[in-house]
Write a protein that binds this DNA or RNA. Structure first.
Lengths: 149, 149
DNA sequence: TTACTAAAGGTGTATATACACTTAAAATCA
DNA sequence: TGATTTTAAGTGTATATACACCTTTAGTAA
């Protein structure tokens, strides 16, 4: 029976996928802890913000802005809709559906935004602003790999 | 009714949580596409590797190595167990349970490791090795924020 | 030794994620 | 115009994630 050697395995802890998912778990907890009074999850906050920026945006476009699979977004919208923070309205033609914030959604952002800012500042303080900015820039560069064949 | 201004929202796309989760989605797809012949998910590959490195490791320790909530790991072990890639054996005392690879688990790593390496090289080529190493280092530094109060 | 505390683990519940597949409507082509 | 293709969206299924809560067992203190 074949077995991989310890030596071969030794490179795996430097896996980009492992390290980014790991950091993602940790950072998500930092932000969700900061926003725990609102009950908003990290992803939910992001969705609300992008919807707020666009006033009204169709689902496929929103998914593109979020770099998120469209079917994932469909599911992610559900809890926000249940909480009546967003509403789904008819789009330009009969195929499309658009998302927009409700009044409650706007109010939620008023509460959540300072809490988010606190989390962002905590992270910036921990890493240093410049290092954090650079890290985010590198993540943006990395994600461009998505379009490659 | 209060509303946040566009100006206030303009900082949010620089959210560390958003950007790291976004990059995490993209990179996960790169690795899973590369390993699609095996049917292994990114997380599953990582679990197999860490278990292989430790021969046998109790669940709580494994969760710590993975920087993953223990209850998440419990769930993540299920599909690996169902595929008989790992087995759960009694630990040192009656509270503990340990994870170890089966023969099939070892064989799977023999197949998956070169596929993983190809993905890792693709990412390294895209970003540049040095930049990628630096990025991973920064992610490791960032995740240290977990222990803070 | 008994009672309390700490450690290890699992379950209920809810959200996040995406692939394969399906349906419906719009756009384009022959 | 009618047929084909493209676009938008939802569902089924499976995995990933973690909090709150519970049970069992081990360790420790009174």
């Amino acid at each position: 029976m074949k077995k991989v050697t310890k030596k071969e395995l030794s490179a795996c802890p430097d896996c980009a996928c492992f390290n980014i998912r790991k950091a993602s778990r940790v950072i998500t907890q930092v932000y969700e802890e900061a926003m725990s009074d609102t009950g908003l999850r990290g992803t939910q906050f992001t969705v609300l913000v992008v919807v707020a920026i666009h006033e009204s945006i169709i689902i496929t476009s929103l998914a593109e802005k979020l770099v998120m699979d469209r079917t994932t977004l469909t599911r992610n919208l559900k809890p926000l809709e249940k909480q009546k923070l967003i509403e789904i309205i008819p789009g330009a033609d009969r195929r499309t559906r658009a998302v927009r914030l409700t009044a409650a959604g706007h109010e939620m952002l008023v509460i959540a935004l300072p809490l988010w800012k606190k989390a962002q500042q905590k992270v910036a303080k921990f890493m240093g602003s410049e290092r954090l900015d650079n890290l985010i820039g590198e993540l943006r560069a990395l994600e461009k790999i998505a379009v490659l064949p």
